[in-house]
Structure formats: structure tokens, C-alpha cells
């Protein structure tokens, strides 16, 4: 009996025919309901089997990977420590950036030839209220030149080397410079006071002086340009019986936290 005439082959051919019909229906998109039913029918069994298998698998894989987890934990801890250090540096950089932006705002509006310098250290050897800058004669810095911060007078250069220089802050008791009261043009002297304050002195009693008035450099010293703001009158210190009027000046500069300054080059 030929194989193709057997019942087995007949059933096989029928199945192939049914399959061909199903493939045609699939191509037409008519088979989606049946496919959906076939896909959904084993789902309860799949969920039950997964619910048993997955926790057991996770338990054994965790035990197997315990050593690896320990190593990874140490690496992550080291990474956290490194990131904390990076965060501290980032915060420092953010502060520095803000200071630079403030300084840059002054530089853009200024016509003076300036050398940008970073403060290397505060309170240098022997001299208090002095800072060391990373600019020297190579950058055009010279003795007596004015040091500015945020557009205000911060001090002046008292010694200079090829790559570094020392600046005496305006708050130092040995600092003094000529000044003008901007509202009246009255000349006066600005001096430092006990490392924390700035004093305006030698204003004649006949000259007007009020709180809030600005005090600027007079330009008598050729190395300190004219009209650089020193500070604002915050308090009148003298009385009518004194020889001269004295006032305390307020400067926006944080002298204890100087990061960047500009030196006015000649």
C-alpha cells in the first residue's frame, strides 16, 4: 500500500491544509482572538511557577554571589568616599566660581590694566593682615600698586618677587592711603584699624560728612588710581570737639576669605 494512501498520511495532509488556512488567516489578521486566547491560557500556571521559582533562584544566586557582593560593597563604599571628597571640592569650586563671577563683573566694567591674582596664603610670616599672591614681576606687578577686590580697594603691594608678591590689606594698622569723600570732594586719609576696620581720618570739622557717603581714592599716589571705591561711611566716630572728623568705613570685601584679587598694573 502506498504511503500516501495511508490513513496517517491523510491525517497529515489534512493537518497541513488546516495549517495553511491558519497561516492565511494570520496574514489577514483574523487569527488574533485565537492567538490571544492561546497566549492567555497558560498564564495562571506561568504565574504560579514563577512565584515559586524566582524567590528560590534569587536566594541561591544571592548565596552564590555573596563573595562578589562583599567585594562590590567595598568598591561602592570606596566610591562613596571618593564622591564625598569630590563633592567637597565641587562646593569649593562653586564658591570660587561665584567669587570669580563677582570679580569678572568688575573687570568687564573697568578700564584699568589689571592682573588677576589668586591668594596663596593669608597672614604671611611676621606680617599680619597681609596676603601672598601668585603674581610677581613676571605678571607686571610692582611695589605700591593697588590691590582690588569686587571693585573696591583691598590693599597694596608691599613686596614682590618674580612669581609672587605680598599685599598689605587695607584693614592693617600700618596701611594708609589718600582718599576723597565722593559727595564733597573733600580730601582725607584712610587707615586700617586693628585688623578689622577701616577709618577715614583728617576730615576738617568744617566739611560735611554723613553716613552712607562713599569714600574713594584721591589719586595723589601715582600708583593708586583715582576714584577707586574704598568703602561707605558707616559711623561718625568723632565729636564736635575733636580736631578732625573721623568715621568708620564699611567695605563689602570679606578680608578673612579672600580668594582672588586684581592688581592695578602701571
Amino acid at each position: 500500500m502506498r504511503f500516501i494512501y495511508t490513513k496517517a498520511f491523510a491525517i497529515f495532509a489534512s493537518c497541513l491544509a488546516v495549517l495553511a488556512i491558519l497561516v492565511f488567516m494570520q496574514a489577514k489578521g483574523w487569527l488574533d482572538p485565537l492567538k490571544l486566547a492561546l497566549l492567555e491560557s497558560p498564564r495562571p500556571v506561568i504565574i504560579m511557577a514563577s512565584g515559586v521559582t524566582v524567590p528560590v533562584k534569587n536566594f541561591f544566586s544571592t548565596i552564590y554571589q555573596l563573595r562578589q557582593i562583599t567585594v562590590e560593597n567595598k568598591q561602592l563604599q570606596d566610591r562613596v568616599n571618593q564622591l564625598q571628597q569630590d563633592m567637597a571640592q565641587y562646593q569649593e569650586l562653586t564658591r570660587e566660581n561665584q567669587d570669580l563671577r563677582t570679580e569678572l563683573g568688575f573687570v568687564k566694567s573697568s578700564q584699568l590694566p589689571l592682573a588677576a591674582c589668586a591668594v596663596l596664603s593669608k597672614n604671611s610670616f611676621i606680617q599680619t593682615d597681609a596676603v601672598i599672591l601668585n603674581c610677581g614681576t613676571d605678571e607686571g606687578v610692582g611695589v605700591g600698586q593697588a590691590v582690588l577686590s569686587q571693585g573696591y580697594l583691598a590693599g597694596k603691594i608691599i613686596s614682590v618677587g618674580p612669581h609672587t608678591s605680598t599685599a598689605l590689606l587695607i584693614t592693617a594698622s600700618s596701611f594708609s592711603t589718600d582718599a576723597n569723600v565722593s559727595q564733597t570732594g573733600q580730601s582725607a586719609i584712610v587707615m586700617g584699624s586693628f585688623s578689622s576696620g577701616i577709618i577715614l581720618d583728617q576730615v576738617p570739622q568744617t566739611s560735611a560728612l554723613q553716613t552712607g557717603w562713599l569714600v574713594v581714592t584721591a589719586g595723589i599716589n601715582p600708583q593708586v588710581p583715582k576714584n577707586i571705591v574704598i568703602g561707605q561711611v558707616s559711623q561718625i566716630l568723632s565729636s564736635g570737639n575733636d580736631l578732625f572728623k573721623r568715621a568708620a568705613l564699611l567695605s563689602p570685601i570679606d578680608f578673612s576669605n579672600l580668594q582672588f584679587v586684581f592688581v592695578v598694573k602701571q
Partner: peptide, 11 residues
């Protein structure tokens, strides 16, 4: 089929 996918599929 459910056992095949749910059990052996995870192993």
C-alpha cells in the same frame, strides 16, 4: 507550557 515558561524559563 506554563511549567516550561514559568519554571524552566527562570532556570
Amino acid at each position: 507550557l506554563g511549567v516550561n515558561i514559568g519554571l524552566f524559563g527562570n532556570l
